[in-house]
Amino acid sequence: MTSISTDAGSTRRTRRSADFLENHHVYEAHRIGLPPMRPYFRELWRRRRFAYELSHTGLKADHFESPLGAIWLVLNPLLLAVVYYLLVSVISSSTRSQGSAYGFAYLAHILIGLFTWYYVQNSMGIGATSVTAGGRLVLNQAFPRMLLPISSVITSLLMYLPTLPVYVVIFFAGRALDPKSGLPPLGWPVLWTPVIILLLTGIGLGLAMIFATMMVYYRDTNKFLSYIIRIWLYLSPVLWTVDRLHGWHRILLYINPVGTTIGAMTDIWINGVQPNVTMMLSSLAWSVGLLVVGGLLFMSRERDFAVRL
């Protein structure tokens, strides 16, 4: 009896797989493993519009109801930059006699560093809750779950991009008002900006996928994350400059996933030089590495998400 039934099952299997249609699905048991890559990414690409619309409508709902609306997206990092600038200036001037190092160039440094850092921080923060917040959707529809962290990164990018022109305006204003500020003339190195944004996107998406997966299993992940994020910010060259690191201390820059990328951004905009090769290679390694590790972790676990929500 048993053998007959298994035979019947296998003939059906072969007959079906012969006329493999897009609408034909076979779901089989697995524990932890990767889904078939080609259909996965085909389906992902087919639904790319969903990721964009999800972040767009989400941003609209979150930011267009308050009186200042979308202006907060720019105002918030700007005000925080001023807060940090005052904080660092006050602390430093009390310990040092000459406060000349904290001029306009330093404010500009904090601005570009913080704006850039917020891109990664938002990707991580919004990305971490993307799967748990999309619970109803995850429970009711089958789609590549990676669209959810991708959408979070798109949200963060849409929040980041408007801050760049704001920075440029302040940059030019600073140069015009204070010719001795030490800010460089705008040159070719600025063209590296899109490359760095691309690398940051990889880092942000990788981290978003890692924390989104952790969040499904451990609901207190984002509580830890808020402290990790704060310490991480202080360890990154945002409030301090890369040239403060000497000798073996420089390793701090390279073991920090965003260290060299933010460092490169500062090199371009504050020092007016091309980012050095080692820093760019390190950034590339972190970006690709996190993307691969995060992607594999996420995809191998995502079919388990629906039972965990």
Partner: peptide, 17 residues
Amino acid sequence: AGILAPSQGRIVVNGRV
């Protein structure tokens, strides 16, 4: 619907769900 995977066994679905 393909939202949950079976722990054992096989599900064949022909068509758009």
